[in-house]
Design a protein around this nucleic acid. Structure first.
Lengths: 347, 347
DNA sequence: GCGCTTTACTAAAGCGCTTTACTAAAGCGC
DNA sequence: GCGCTTTAGTAAAGCGCTTTAGTAAAGCGC
């Protein structure tokens, strides 16, 4: 209340509670943890009352030291300011909070080596488990790093031997749906801005893209596929170079919405009309997709649900200690908007 | 390595290190914490070697229990999936990580009562400090809740008595700049979509808006200002109602970019051209502003820097224990884009 | 070579919980 | 009323660090 916040944070301890209630600390501990099976109801009540009166709050640190649990999970993302990951993070936070777990946020800044670094940090912090999204690092070191955790879940990637539970989007399907949509609209020359070379989902989407082309009997040109960094700026630059080298392209499938937005801007710069001169499909269907103009046709991925699912899976692993290395595969759905079927717009 | 992750997480402890190195645990502790002032260099070396050999990692939990420090800071945001907050979060994570602090993420979901709840949780978790952004709760309970922390920093709000260090944007100036820009373009009927009623920054921006109008000798109509929830959907709905009730408006200043994007959509729906029929100014200059079409004129707020600044201030408070309740005021800058001065676009 | 400080350590208490092993008293069948 | 189980507790040993108080030996001036 006063102007200076004093250092008088004398916390109430369990022994004070025990003393006031006239019992031993172990009894208080039992009451706290609802181990009331062999405890007189009146004792229980009395302890609760004392706890309330003294405003006692058990120290999670002391508890962690004794139990080797922290009720904390680590969340590793490449970039929390990317709408895709922040949406997932939100889903994760929601259910973690509801289940009394806190989340420790780590941003790798799209730097693969940082992934191992932050995992190391999380390990040292004794988190109960980790959820890692959008991994860029190679399989072997990652697997090695993940073995140090009681539990871990990966989002948007799958290890070859499947030892780590994963939440996956069926990206082959997503790539296929996007490409087929463009094919059905009559496009025969379709480019793919494939995102980071190290992205697992990128390679899967490429497979879907190829599959659709093959199915349509179209021979894919080598240069139609181009990697780029997954930002609007990256997409814009890549679009310029792709369209310059392959003027025959009439449609573009993009690794994510940010890249697609970059493509939109690139078209605006050179006066290409969307979708008449170039149809564009994004991926993830983030907030962005419906907000830009023209709105982007995009492959919808339920980020929030993926986040919740990841936490559920993780907590199951942590608590049941079952080694069920399951995989949850989420089916994406194409959301069709004006960037492929709209009235032509010059952006 | 094997297919099943066993429970053999026998951690190396400080006593094992001490024993192997032939010293006491206190000496190892001193070595660990670089208290080498009175320690033989060869002892130090020997301990380091043993640490390396045994791959010893001190337990932060045990350390926390002994020192009453957790090297963790709490971050409270209304909505991590809002680009504005995720950008701030990124700034925070960056410098916190660099200074060996971890961040505990809490999302309140724009729910004022959740703010107190999560602060309670963070308190129980003994974080060393908290950074709270975009608070909606009233002053009194917040101040009360914040006193429980060793240190705290608030972003985008200022308590009347200024007892808590704050990182602020000069929102009066921002509102003024935005409005003056519109006035200079010749607009005389300018609406303001003011965001949540409980937003501190909202009221400040309103002041700037009013100031600019007064300066221009324009009498502000009561109905020109309307509150709305700070999302695209909220902005869209509010724009419809505002324009219906006040068809005289030729320009709109929006509380944030999301609302502005909603306004853009509302205009598209009724065929209003931007900026000819309606000029629109956003706020925050998030990624969104430059990506939508037409690109939004917006008041630029350096989110990353705000985040870094918040952490720096917080860590200063934590470590120096100085009660310097300073305020960092950041000057926003108007970024002019096509939504106010562009070639007319029908979106 | 006697007191003094300095150097380089150690022993042990404590941080605030959980948990294991133990006990005293009550209940119960016969 | 004798053994047995059940009930309702307690005492104390950790968990893995930090830190305080203390000590033995070396260095030093004179």
């Amino acid at each position: 209340m006063g102007p200076s916040r004093k250092r008088e944070n004398k916390r109430v301890t369990i022994s004070e509670v025990a003393q006031t209630a006239g019992v031993s600390t172990s009894t208080v501990s039992n009451a706290l943890n609802n181990r009331t099976n062999s405890m007189a109801p009146e004792t229980f009540e009395r302890i609760l009352k004392v706890i309330q009166e003294l405003d006692y709050r058990p120290s999670p640190i002391a508890r962690s030291l004794a139990t080797a649990r922290t009720a904390t999970i680590g969340l590793v993302v490449p970039d929390i300011s990317n709408p895709y990951f922040s949406a997932i993070a939100r889903g994760i936070e929601q259910v973690a909070y509801a289940r009394d777990y806190s989340i420790l946020l780590c941003n790798t800044g799209e730097d693969a080596s940082r992934e191992l670094e932050v995992l190391q940090t999380l390990r040292e912090r004794y988190v109960d488990g980790v959820i890692v999204c959008g991994l860029r690092q190679d399989d072997a070191p990652l697997l090695q790093a993940l073995t140090h955790f009681r539990a871990s879940v990966i989002v948007n990637r799958r290890f070859v031997n499947g030892t780590v539970p994963a939440i996956l989007v069926d990206d082959v399907l997503g790539g296929y749906l996007a490409t087929r949509h463009l094919l059905q609209l009559g496009h025969t020359s379709i480019g793919f801005l494939a995102g980071p070379t190290t992205s697992y989902s990128g390679t899967k989407r490429l497979q879907g893209y190829e599959q659709a082309l093959i199915e349509a009997g179209i021979e894919r040109q080598e240069g139609w596929v181009q990697n780029c960094i997954p930002t609007a700026a990256g997409g814009e630059a890549a679009t310029h170079s792709l369209l310059t080298n392959h003027p025959e392209l009439t449609a573009l499938f993009c690794f994510n919405d940010l890249i697609a937005v970059g493509a939109l801007r690139a078209c605006a710069a050179v006066g290409r009309r969307i979708p008449k001169d170039l149809a564009i499909v994004g991926y993830d269907d983030t907030m962005l997709a419906s907000l830009v103009s023209p709105p982007l046709t995009s492959c919808h991925v339920p980020c929030l649900e993926m986040g919740s699912q990841a936490v559920s899976t993780l907590l199951n692993c942590i608590n049941d200690d079952t080694d069920m290395c399951n995989e949850t595969v989420i089916t994406p759905e194409l959301v069709i908007r004006a960037s492929t079927v709209g009235i032509d717009t010059t952006v």
